[in-house]
């Protein structure tokens, strides 16, 4: 689905954010991208939809080479990539519905979108994803009237309504409390499975990443230093990614939480139906 080859990003200041990154993500796979702050996680996913211009290398989405698109073609390509942000990045003064419909902007003309006259098919899509993420009761509320977890659900709905092939997720839980974080991560993983989406999830919480994703990529100073299953994150690997520290506690915590989660899974699922708002 997504194939990145030799991606390099050098900022105008001369900082090298990414160096010859090569990786590929098949459809339906959720990849967790971990690494210390400044490792280039954010630059990597922003290079994919070209919010940040890559300096070298190729990025292919299916057969489409994203790194050499004209402006117009880039707009069309971006419709196939949904993005979810750390601070939700909602337009506060627009309603929930308007925020979700903004995911369809790439498909409708300017004046139609300006007067909020979206095709009924788009409205139907928006209602469907709002129902899926459990926000049916908040459609005409302003985005800034919602709680953090609800806001992130709106962000997810906006990405989904694009009907993308790929999700780019930038620290989705960094502004949320632990319980809501898990609900949001679970929602993202479930949605990727339902719709067979590829996803790259930037995440700084190693334990949370291990709990939900099928594959982890570790970045350090712009280079890939680990690529494998969550179990492969041994203390040595973590030391290579983050630097020397006592990692046993982190790993044990993740395992324990995994067990606990398995034990209370039915209860959690019951509590975590989409209607439950964070």
């Amino acid at each position: 689905m997504l194939v990145i080859e030799n991606l390099t990003k050098r900022y105008a200041t001369g900082d090298l954010a990414l160096e010859k990154v090569t990786l590929s993500v098949p459809a339906g796979q959720v990849v967790g991208l971990i690494g210390p702050s400044g490792a280039g996680k954010s630059s990597l996913i922003r290079c994919v939809n070209r919010l940040v211009e890559p300096s070298e290398g190729t990025i292919k989405l299916g057969d489409l080479d994203l790194s050499r698109l004209s402006r117009r073609a880039l707009g069309q390509a971006r419709r196939r990539m949904g993005m979810i942000f750390q601070e939700y990045a909602l337009v506060d003064r627009l309603s929930v519905m308007e925020n979700v419909l903004s995911g369809r902007l790439g498909y409708v003309g300017f004046w139609r979108s300006f007067f909020r006259r979206f095709p009924q098919a788009d409205i139907d899509r928006a209602f469907a994803v709002l129902e899926r993420v459990g926000l049916t009761d908040h459609i005409d509320k302003r985005a800034d009237a919602l709680s953090g977890g609800q806001r992130q659900r709106v962000g997810i709905a906006r990405a989904l309504v694009q009907e993308p092939d790929l999700l780019l997720v930038d620290e989705p839980t960094a502004s949320l409390d632990p319980k809501t974080s898990r609900q949001i991560m679970r929602l993202i993983v479930e949605l990727c499975a339902e719709r067979n989406l590829a996803a790259i999830v930037n995440i700084h919480d190693v334990a949370l990443a291990q709990m939900f994703v099928q594959r982890i990529i570790g970045l350090r100073k712009g280079k890939v230093v680990f690529d494998g299953p969550p179990d492969g994150l041994t203390p040595d690997v973590l030391t290579e990614i983050y630097g020397a520290e006592d990692w046993t506690a982190t790993i044990r915590k993740a395992e324990e939480e995994d067990e606990q989660a398995a034990a209370v899974a039915p209860a959690v699922l019951a509590r975590d139906t989409p209607m439950v708002t964070a």
Partner: peptide
């Protein structure tokens, strides 16, 4: 998924 189309216009 809702089967019936629901209309939506922005609240005035």
């Amino acid at each position: 998924m809702s089967a019936v189309s629901r209309r939506w216009t922005p609240p005035p």
